[in-house]
Design a protein around this nucleic acid. Structure first.
Lengths: 254, 254
DNA sequence: CTTGACAGTTAGTTGCGCCTAACTCTTTTT
DNA sequence: AAAAAGAGTTAGGCGCAACTAACTGTCAAG
């Protein structure tokens, strides 16, 4: 047994529940854990045996439940994930606290370490960057609700974004079926609708003339789908499969 | 059977796999599905029976697999979730395409509808808001990596953020154990470290004098932990449990 | 000190989603 | 047209995580 032996989502939930119960009351009792997780006591006993056999809690039948050193570390890690996600949802996405909490509860189990760090960093960045900050986030509120505007960005929002918001609503339904460059068969033409690529790749594409609205023709797709050969404004280009998946298009009659 | 009968994560994966295979080849075959999901053929047969009995695919032993109307709708919904998350990770969080794709694969199953919409809206907002946009996101890249800077925010970042970044690193380890106002026992004092609340609630708190660095004393906690009575700069305040959980503090000697 | 009342445990069941092994159906090769 | 190859199925098993039902431990009141 290494550092932490890959816990199941369920066992993580137990760990988290125990952590909070110990914070609030003195000791963790089976009954409380069962109540918190909406589970029957018998299920808790089973979980306790599992956690105990992994060396995360001190447990013997009818006795009190405490963390081992490893267990406390594991529990804190789960709680950290939970809080980081919740904070992100509340502060950046302006979601209601309760909704954020429930969502974090579900998502804390399936987020990878690198991505979690990104979420945390992004929340901090928004807080700290002079170009973003609270007022900017308030602009996002307006973008979503059309009625919770603060002092500053207001006029900009009203004039510049109103039509974009309308636009977005109009094609709301059409967006369900998104085609990417990967879905286009050789010989067919397509118009670029949106480019969803990371910054560097995105810039490269723009330099090659791959802008929204431009028309491209798929020439050939290599055996494994990688790369895709296309023609764009008269030039031949090779696009990686990875990148082709981030280029949303709209099929055109050839 | 209503509109969609609550699919398991596993069945959603099968639906998604079938969708992509049908896009790429003409027909979906058990072998291809098995290969794509890293699963044995026997497992696929089982899943096909389940999907068929839910009325999502047309399936009979040894015959070809196609979507029913309902099935195609359900599959497109899963794909939409996947792509929305992936786009968000790539465009907003500047994560590598492959990492984003894998993460989306896991998270697509446990995200709620309202939150998903927020993710989509936020990505669009960043794209569309004049104060955010690509250059700003590039600033986030710098915040994370310290070396992928574009033209514009550069000087600001270097001068204003350098120390903040350093600061963040310094206390990186301490942040593991985050205390919130909820963890403070009556009679104890605490210093506010961070306020993670939605915009409106956050403003209200600031108006009451709850700023980072201010010292508060917990007077009483009501039976169910709600509300928490505190003393702040001489005034008495009642704080909701929900809000108390978003106020990060650091315990102080009383 | 005995007796409830309640907390906690054990035993056995269920459903899900995967597996292996062995069988059957389909397609291709000779 | 028969045999070999390969695709797909069935049967049976396993681990997980929940459940019910029935049993056992603990503790406080009479």
């Amino acid at each position: 047994m290494g550092i932490t032996d890959e816990l199941s989502a369920s066992l993580e939930d137990y760990l988290e529940a125990i952590y909070h119960i110990i914070r609030e009351k003195q000791a963790a009792r089976v009954k409380d854990i069962a109540a918190r997780l909406h589970v029957k006591a018998a299920s808790v006993t089973g979980a306790m045996r599992a956690l105990s056999s992994k060396g995360l809690i001190n447990y013997a039948p009818f006795e009190i439940i405490t963390f081992t050193r490893d267990g406390e570390i594991a529990a804190k890690d789960v709680v950290r994930r939970h809080n980081a996600l919740k904070d992100f949802f509340v502060k950046v996405l302006s979601v209601d606290t309760d909704v954020a909490d429930k969502a974090a509860c579900e998502m804390e189990h399936c987020i990878t370490k690198p991505l979690l760090e990104r979420f945390i960093q992004f929340a901090e960045f928004v807080e700290v960057c002079p170009r973003a900050g609270t007022k900017w986030i308030r602009g996002f509120g307006y973008f979503c609700d059309h009625d919770s505007m603060g002092e500053n960005c207001e006029t900009c929002m009203r004039t510049n974004l109103a039509e974009l918001i309308q636009n977005r609503k109009d094609k709301g339904e059409t967006m369900n079926e998104k085609l990417t460059l990967r879905d286009i068969k050789p010989g067919k033409k397509a118009k670029v609708v949106k480019v969803a690529l990371a910054d560097t790749a995105s810039r490269r594409m723009v330099e090659m003339g791959m802008t929204v609205g431009s028309v491209i023709e798929v020439v050939r797709i290599a055996p494994m789908g990688d790369p895709v050969d296309i023609k764009l404004k008269g030039y031949h280009l090779s696009v990686r499969k990875k990148e082709a998946e981030g280029i949303y298009v709209e099929e055109m009659p050839s």
